[in-house]
Nucleic acid binder design. Structure first.
Length: 351
DNA sequence: AACAGGAGCAACCGCACCACA
DNA sequence: ATGTGGTGCGGTTGCTCCTGT
């Protein structure tokens, strides 16, 4: 190969485009199409390389480009697609009409990545981080609190600060705990499914709990005086009762806007036998309260035939669990909710 | 008001892939 | 089969604007 880059040619302008250049480019493409990008600059009277012209057109001047802030839906879509595709910005862009790969990439790097990190998720794997770095902010907060107390704050101020930290720690701990747990139990399920064929019986649910207790999260729980037993109880419940739900199915025509629905696996647990002979599994979808997606008991049942083509992603169960633990508060994170309802159709679409 | 640091974003760079001669 | 041109893609850079001191 060894072909030199087109922009090596001397005398060609680089840097920001002027309105005049933009106008020349737009007019030329509108009249003649872009044709060969390499030939275009001369034909359009531009002192730019073809590559620069192409970039300017595709990322900025194209008439179908949607500009402005990303909507909540777009954000959810990006988060979810990124969890599937990674940094395949062009592939992600195909699912967001009017958005360019460059714009999505920038949005990811400047907003979403930081957001995930702040929420305690690894932006590359989308999994909860259990390393020191992720718990550091909380440990620092604890240190700050100790310092505050040392400075003779009033009891009320101390209580307020403590409550705030507790709430945040509880939230993070729950998310990470449940996610960890359900991932573990999913692994457990897989192992248990094969247990008759292998001798691998060393992995049991007690081990899940034990492992979980060894995570930094339990430290956070202790710090913030979380009712840890409650979490562990839920953990045990889900460890012992998950099997069918990992294999439940949701058909496409029941796919709903992730902003509008939440999912309750407790309901699923209670109704998994189905309501007639032909239907084997049910899921309940409910309108999602903007910030607190608690289970709405007035929602309707949705038929989820076992023959539906796509399975509920494992992480859906995390959303489930969060709903089920709503009795003691908490809000599942946006990524989980989006993953729950976006994954299947898009995965199907991509395949 | 001036400056520093950070955030956001447009643009560039270099590599990879594909089509074609 | 190989070389070359064209294009697309992901990572990075650097400029501009904003905010805090």
């Amino acid at each position: 190969m060894g072909r030199s880059p087109c922009c090596d040619e001397s005398g060609l302008k680089k840097g920001p485009w002027t309105p005049e250049e933009d106008q020349k480019l737009v007019e030329h493409i509108q009249q003649h199409g872009h044709g060969s990008w390499r030939a275009l600059p001369k034909l359009a009277g531009l002192n730019r390389c073809g590559k620069s012209c192409r970039l300017r057109w595709t990322n900025y001047l194209r008439p179908d480009i949607k500009r402005g802030k990303f909507s909540q839906e777009e954000e959810q879509t990006i988060l979810h697609l990124h969890s599937i595709l990674g940094n395949k910005w062009s592939a992600i862009a195909t699912h967001l009409p009017g958005r360019t790969d460059n714009e999505i990439k920038n949005f990811w790097n400047t907003h979403l990545k930081k957001k995930l990190i702040q929420m305690g998720f690894d932006p590359m794997t989308h999994q909860p981080r259990t390393d020191l770095v992720s718990t550091l902010p909380y440990l620092l907060a604890l240190a700050n609190m100790t310092e505050l107390m040392d400075h003779h704050q009033s009891w009320d101020e101390q209580q307020t600060a403590m409550s705030s930290l507790q709430a945040e720690a509880v939230h993070l701990a729950k998310l990470q705990c449940l996610h960890y747990l359900l991932q573990s139990s999913n692994s457990s399920l897989n192992i248990n499914n094969n247990i008759n064929n292998t001798n691998n019986s060393s992995y049991d649910q007690n081990a899940i709990i034990t492992n979980m207790e060894q995570e930094p999260l339990s430290l956070l729980n202790t710090i913030s005086n979380v009712k840890q037993n409650t979490i562990i109880d839920h953990a045990a419940t889900f460890s012992s009762s998950q099997p069918l739900h990992h294999q439940s199915m949701i058909p496409h025509d029941h796919f709903l806007d992730p902003q509008q629905v939440s999912f309750s696996s407790q309901s699923c647990l209670n109704n998994e036998q189905g309501q007639n002979g032909t239907i084997t599994n049910y899921a309940m979808l409910s309108q999602r309260n903007q910030d607190y997606p608690t289970v709405d008991h007035e929602t309707s049942w949705i038929n989820v035939p076992s023959s539906a083509p796509l399975s509920i992603p494992t992480n859906a169960i995390t959303g489930d669990a969060s709903s089920c633990t709503s009795s003691y508060g908490g809000t599942p994170s946006a990524p989980y909710w989006s993953e729950l309802f976006f994954e299947d159709p898009i995965m199907h679409d991509l395949s």
